[in-house]
Design a protein around this nucleic acid. Structure first.
Length: 272
DNA sequence: AAGCCAACCTGGACGC
DNA sequence: TGCGTCCAGGTTGGCT
């Protein structure tokens, strides 16, 4: 579910609501997420204060001085800021009690992760160490040109590879390709530099617009920000999830095909 | 050795 | 109403 714009939306509300607050309690269920949640590892956070909230690709880092929480929402994760004592939603695996507010991490499908690491050793966290530059950082164009040049894999696979660029998922990779006029199936290595530069610009614009809209909440209502609100970027999607519907740019019927086990949507007229 | 694909989970939508 | 099937925003490890 959550890609860069959704995670950034959550980051901003966590930052506004929780930075400067002290941790006064915590409850972690020993549940198997992508990494096992170890209840004991969260206890040292008691008494510490949230200093800042960072985002790297789709990861959130809650920095409590010498310790940091590394969080990933997977497909179905949510971070909700609620009033103290608010009822637990099903599949709530972690609760951090701050003075005056609680942070609940819920994740029905359990593809997310939640770990505590020493802040000084964040560079050693395997999941973070392998990430390419953030999709909103400078230098995405160069990285994309270099990565495309060394593979014949479909361009969408390159965009989804977090080691190349961090933060894109299926929705925004799909939409960036639509804006750039490139079919998801195109072998990356065959694309002209001019088209890849256009793609880099499309990535930035689609992510910035999606953040401004508070992210994408599909019909199923999956994504919510930390206040429980939906994002409204779905109305601006050109092709994602729109098989058989008119492309929002030219009106042609959007096509869907399976690519690497996941749906790829494209406009047969705009994208070549 | 790059690249494909099943597996990890639950829940919601849809068809019969 | 109820059951079976398919699909989902992500990542990883194993196989070819």
């Amino acid at each position: 579910m959550p890609e860069l714009p959704e995670v950034e939306t959550v980051r901003r509300s966590l930052s506004a609501r929780l930075v400067g607050r002290r941790v006064v309690g915590c409850r972690a269920r020993a549940v198997r997420l992508r990494s096992c949640v170890d209840p004991a590892s969260w206890q040292p956070l008691l008494g510490t204060t949230l200093v800042r909230v960072e985002r790297r690709g789709k990861f959130l880092l809650l920095v409590f001085g010498e310790l940091s929480a590394v969080l990933h929402l997977g497909m179905s994760g949510r971070l909700l800021v609620v009033a103290p004592g608010a009822p637990l939603q099903p599949h709530t695996h972690l609760t951090l009690h701050f003075e005056g507010a609680e942070l609940h991490f819920q994740d029905p499908r359990r593809f997310g992760r939640a770990e505590v690491w020493p802040t000084a050793r964040l560079a050693e966290v395997p999941a973070l160490a392998g990430l390419g530059p953030d999709a909103l950082a400078e230098g995405v164009e160069e990285v994309l040109l270099a990565a495309a040049a060394r593979t014949r894999a479909p361009i969408r696979s390159v965009l989804l590879d977090q080691r190349v660029v961090a933060g894109l998922g299926n929705i925004y990779a799909t939409e960036a390709l639509a804006r750039a006029g490139i079919r998801p199936t195109r072998p990356a290595g065959g694309l002209a530099a001019r088209r890849l530069r256009r793609l880099a610009l499309a990535i930035r614009s689609v992510l910035e617009e999606a953040i401004a809209a508070g992210g994408t909440t599909l019909q199923d209502g999956g994504f919510q920000d930390a206040e429980g609100r939906a994002g409204f970027f779905a109305v601006e999607l050109c092709v994602y999830g729109r098989e058989g519907l008119p492309c929002r740019r030219c009106g042609s019927s959007v096509r869907r095909l399976a690519l690497g086990g996941r749906s790829a949507y494209f406009c047969p007229r705009c994208q070549r």
